[in-house]
C-alpha cells in the first residue's frame, strides 16, 4: 500500500491555556472519504484549522504527516500548494476583490508553486466557466467581490468551485452543510461527489448526519472532548442520528 495521504499521530493542541485536542489519531489513505462527527466544542473545527495552518494554536504533542512528510512546519500557502484544501464553514468576505481575480491569483500561485505552468487569462476564464456551470453558479457571481453579499448557498458553491480548481490531494470540508437549504445541499454535495477520485482523500466534518446521506463516507469517526471516541463504517453515522452524542460526552 502507498503512503497514506494524511496521518495524524497523537495530536495535542491548545489555544492559550485551554487544551482542545487531547490526542487525535487518524489515518486517511488515497481515495478514502472520512467523516468526523461530533457535538459543538468537540474540537472538530480546531482540527481543520490546524491542518490548514491557522495561527493561534499551539501543538503540544504529536505530529501530522501529509504524504509522509511533516505538514505542521509548512505555512498555510505552502500547504495549499502541496494539496491541502480547507472548505471554510464561514467563507470570508473580501470587499473590492472580484472572485475571478481572486481565483486566478490563487490558482496561479498554487500552480507556480507546484511547478505547473500558470494559466493565461483566457484559458483560465474558460476553465472557470466550465466548472461554474457544473455547480449551477451564476456567471455574474464571478464578477462580484469575494463572498460579499453572497447567500449561504452561494458561498459554499464558491468554496466547492475553488476546490475543483485546486485539485487538492486532501480536501477538508468544515461544516459544509451549515447555512444550506436542502436544494443547495444537494448541489454542493453533487459538486463534492464529482471530485471524489482514487487519488484524492477527503475529510468531511459535520455536526449532523444529513450531509452524509449525500456525501457517503467510507469511515466515520466520532469526536468529543478533543478525542476520537469511536470509529466505524457509515452505519456509525446512523447510530448517532438515533442516539445522539450524549454517551460520548458522558464518557469523556
Amino acid at each position: 500500500m502507498s503512503t497514506p495521504i494524511l496521518e495524524i499521530k497523537n495530536l495535542h493542541a491548545r489555544v492559550e491555556e485551554k487544551e482542545i485536542l487531547k490526542g487525535i489519531n487518524l489515518t486517511i489513505n488515497e481515495g478514502e472519504v472520512h467523516a468526523i462527527m461530533g457535538p459543538n466544542g468537540s474540537g472538530k473545527s480546531t482540527l481543520s484549522y490546524i491542518l490548514a495552518g491557522r495561527e493561534g494554536y499551539e501543538i503540544t504533542a504529536g505530529e501530522v504527516l501529509f504524504k509522509g512528510k511533516d505538514l505542521l512546519s509548512l505555512a498555510p500557502e505552502e500547504r495549499a500548494a502541496a494539496g491541502v484544501f480547507l472548505g471554510f464553514q464561514y467563507p470570508v468576505e473580501i470587499p473590492g476583490v472580484s472572485n475571478i481575480i481572486f481565483l486566478k491569483t490563487c490558482v496561479n500561485s498554487v500552480r507556480k508553486a507546484r511547478g505547473q505552468a500558470e494559466y493565461d487569462a483566457i484559458k483560465f476564464l474558460r476553465i472557470v466557466r466550465e466548472k461554474a456551470k457544473t455547480l449551477n453558479m451564476d456567471e455574474a457571481m464571478l464578477k462580484r467581490s469575494v463572498n460579499v453579499g453572497f447567500s449561504g448557498g452561494e458561498k459554499k458553491r464558491a468554496e466547492i468551485l475553488q476546490m475543483a480548481l485546486f485539485e487538492p490531494s486532501l480536501a477538508v470540508l468544515d461544516e459544509t452543510d451549515s447555512g444550506l437549504d436542502i436544494d443547495a445541499l444537494k448541489v454542493v454535495s453533487d459538486g463534492v461527489n464529482a471530485l471524489r477520485d482514487p487519488s484524492r482523500a477527503m475529510l468531511v466534518i459535520t455536526h449532523y448526519q444529513r450531509l452524509l446521506n449525500h456525501i457517503v463516507p467510507d469511515h466515520v469517526h466520532v469526536m468529543a472532548a478533543g478525542r476520537i471516541q469511536e470509529s466505524g463504517g457509515r452505519e456509525l453515522a446512523q447510530k448517532l442520528e438515533a442516539n445522539g452524542y450524549a454517551q460520548y460526552i458522558k464518557a469523556a
Binding site: 495552518g53 498555510p76 500557502e77 495549499a80 467563507p91 473580501i94 490563487c106 500561485s109 498554487v110
Partner: peptide, 11 residues
C-alpha cells in the same frame, strides 16, 4: 482574510 488567502496559496 489573511488566513483565507494563505489557505488558498497566497503568501
Amino acid at each position: 482574510q489573511l488566513f483565507y488567502c494563505r489557505q488558498r496559496g497566497l503568501s
